[in-house]
């Protein structure tokens, strides 16, 4: 059963940046692209469980702060060593200035 969860205010995330969102014992990363769109993925890198919210957003790529593993945060696709496993993504919508993500 999926539900929409309020993650943060739209202004909490700077353009081309990411913040961490913890909910119900899980951690997520909320992104704002250079085109002012919002995206959400699992919060930990699939390589070594490092928080992606400390990483660097460049265009549509999030780079892990520990080993520079790169993912496309829009699709979750791993972009090569040292990350091999894709990142899970979540549907996002904006509602009354809030970023909502859809969780299982």
């Amino acid at each position: 059963m999926s539900e929409w969860v309020e993650a943060c205010a739209a202004d909490d995330v700077e353009e081309e940046d990411v913040i961490r969102f913890d909910h119900a014992g899980r951690t997520f990363a909320i992104y704002r692209s250079p085109d002012d769109e919002y995206f959400a993925t699992d919060g930990l890198c699939t390589h070594e469980k490092v928080h992606l919210a400390d990483g660097l957003v460049m265009d549509d790529i999030i780079e892990c702060p520990k080993h520079n593993g790169r993912f496309n945060y829009k699709t979750g696709a791993a972009k090569g060593a040292p990350v091999c496993v894709n990142l899970r993504t979540y549907p996002v919508k904006l509602e009354a200035g809030m970023v909502m993500i859809q969780l299982d």
Binding site: H47, E48, K66, H67, A81, P82
Partner: peptide, 10 residues
């Protein structure tokens, strides 16, 4: 060596 260096940082 890409992988060994990742391990070095971990």
């Amino acid at each position: 060596w890409r992988w060994s260096h990742a391990r070095h940082h971990t």
